[in-house]
Write a protein that binds this DNA or RNA. Structure first.
Length: 489
RNA sequence: UCCUGAGUAGCUCAAUGGCAGAGCAUUCGGCUGUUAACCGAAGGGUUGUAGGUUCGAGUCCUACCUCAGGAGCCA
């Protein structure tokens, strides 16, 4: 190590443009190495990007040349060199290497397992701790971080208070899904939360507008590209909010996230291979398809929500950004069913949709494929929805709920509803679903002490990352995915 | 839980029931502008496991194991 006063400054690869013509030191790893006789082309990475170095044998000491020539991939090192603009380089810059110091050399008999060639899913997941170092995986995690930051930022700047619910819970929140069970001291069982919704209904009635953001667990044996057993969910809950306001909130929220990603990650999205035009279409202010006009007509025929229950900041569109109002298509369950009937008659989907049933995966894929923006489907039959959803006063067989389907067949990214606010109705619903009343007494209390209309939704982060990045599986959207058949590494 | 498919070198994959192969990775040699560099050479195998059919099984049959895709359920 040099302790001279003229030690070159330490730079990151992402910031090299501001060091053009200067000698700097990078700290990182050897990503790849090409050699052409007495000329070496090492590629370095440091977590912020990659840069190709160039090492003519005559330009460095014999020791530096030989060390680098025989260096193994992913060995850690510091490298000193001069930054030079070069039109042949993908990033526009190259590094004229002057010196190199190896921190740890990867032994050649145990080479870095992830090569630049193709690998199978099983092998990559088994080496997830090393797979993360590849440019594509790093780019995905950067986009994920921005999506999570934008989500929190939207709520933080719009008057929401973050109130995180417990992860250990005494019982099933909804009484349906399979839960991970564990011993809780002597006699009790505890379960990993599958949703914080019931708890943030309590904090919403305390604080007005709240959200939670944390991990969620489902022990269901789902084995598809859309499922993890451990995933992250962000959930807003708002007092005095009705269904239509909830749709506006979801619309502005998603618009803010996509806008933020597009503002910061065009280079990463390019590395990942996402068609950026499809994201730009999501936030485009103009109507995207002809189908939307039919939907608008239907939406306008519905009565306006009571003015005093509308939150002006939410109803005004996207308050955090100055972007024009963005409209996502809105379909009632009945309209979506009609769309599927037509599609089946025209041979566009294989199985007919039975009225009254929930939409299956192929149904959702077809519906979302008809639009370039997320589709909001509202007012499902109450019978197939959770006990806590408020019935539609215009048709009590329907629930005031919404599912938001991501474009391009990525499926449901948001599920939400207006909550039952009547004590008696909620109590009878709990009983009708065969749920233990005593476990829900605290939840019933919320309808006993100053009940108000309130609504909220949950958004699965990993599905949003998969959609925004254009990935074919959610296992790449989280550093260490937990799936049915894998809990290593 | 159900349906379908796949397990062969470290990795990705070939091999009509008849000698176990290639590319990449590793090692050695060559090359002064390479972009998953290229060229030459070497090492590297209990074909997922257990049984069965056959003169002969990576290949056919049975069971099991592992993984993947889908359904259901969900975000």
């Amino acid at each position: 190590m040099s302790n001279e006063a003229n030690t070159p400054p330490i730079a990151t690869i992402a910031s090299l443009a501001s060091f053009e013509g200067q000698t700097i030191t990078l700290r990182g790893w050897l990503y790849n190495l090409r050699a052409s006789g007495k000329l070496l082309f090492p590629i370095f990475r440091d977590g912020t990007g990659t840069i190709q170095g160039i090492v003519p044998k005559a330009a460095v000491t014999e020791a530096v040349f030989e060390t680098l020539k025989n260096l193994t991939l992913e060995s850690s090192l510091t490298v000193t060199g001069k930054v030079r603009a070069d039109s042949r380089a993908p990033s526009g810059y190259e590094l004229d290497v002057e010196n190199i110091e190896v921190l740890q050399r990867v032994p050649e008999d145990t080479p870095f397992p992830i090569t630049l060639k193709e690998h199978g899913v099983d092998f990559l997941m088994e080496h997830r701790h090393l797979w993360l170092r590849t440019p594509r995986q790093s780019a995905i995690l950067r986009v994920r971080a921005t999506i999570m930051r934008a989500a929190a930022e939207y709520f933080d700047t719009n008057g929401f208070i973050r109130t995180d619910p417990p992860i250990l819970t005494p019982n099933a929140c909804e009484g349906t899904s399979e839960l991970f069970e564990m011993d809780y001291f002597d006699d009790d069982k505890a379960y990993l939360t599958q949703s914080g919704q019931l708890y943030i209904e309590a904090t919403a009635l305390a604080l007005g507008k709240v959200y939670s953001f944390g991990p969620t667990f489902r022990a269901e044996k789902s084995k598809t590209r859309r499922h993890l057993t451990e995933f992250w969910m962000v959930e807003p809950e708002v007092a005095f909010l009705e269904l239509d306001g909830l749709l506006n909130l979801a619309e502005a929220f998603i618009t803010h996230i996509v806008t933020t990603v597009l503002a910061h990650h065009r280079a990463d999205l390019k590395v990942i291979g996402k068609d950026i035009a499809k994201l730009e279409a999501v936030i485009a202010p103009e109507a995207a398809t002809t189908s939307e006009s039919e939907i608008e007509k239907d939406a306008s025929s519905r009565p306006e929500p009571k003015a005093e229950w509308r939150d002006p900041r939410i109803s005004s569109g996207a308050p955090q950004t100055s972007a024009p109002v963005n409209k996502f298509p809105r379909l009632s369950y009945d309209e979506a069913h009609a769309m599927l009937e037509k599609a089946f008659a025209e041979g566009k989907i294989e199985a007919p949709h039975k009225y009254g049933d929930d939409f299956g995966s192929p149904d959702e894929t077809y519906i979302s494929s008809q639009f370039s923006k997320p589709v909001m489907i509202h007012r499902y039959p109450a019978a197939i929805k959770a006990f806590y959803m408020q019935p539609d006063p215009l048709d009590p067989t329907k629930a005031l709920c919404v599912d938001v389907l991501a474009p391009e067949g990525y499926g449901e990214i948001i599920g939400g509803s207006q909550r039952v606010d009547s004590y008696d109705l909620l109590k009878s619903r709990i009983e009708a679903h065969g749920l233990p009343l005593d476990a829900f007494q605290w939840y019933l209390d919320l309808r006993k002490y100053g009940s108000v209309p309130h609504a909220g939704f949950g958004m699965g982060i990993e599905r949003v990352v998969a959609w925004i990045c254009g990935l074919d599986h959610v296992r790449e959207t989280i550093p260490f995915a937990r799936t049915l058949n894998r809990i290593y590494p």
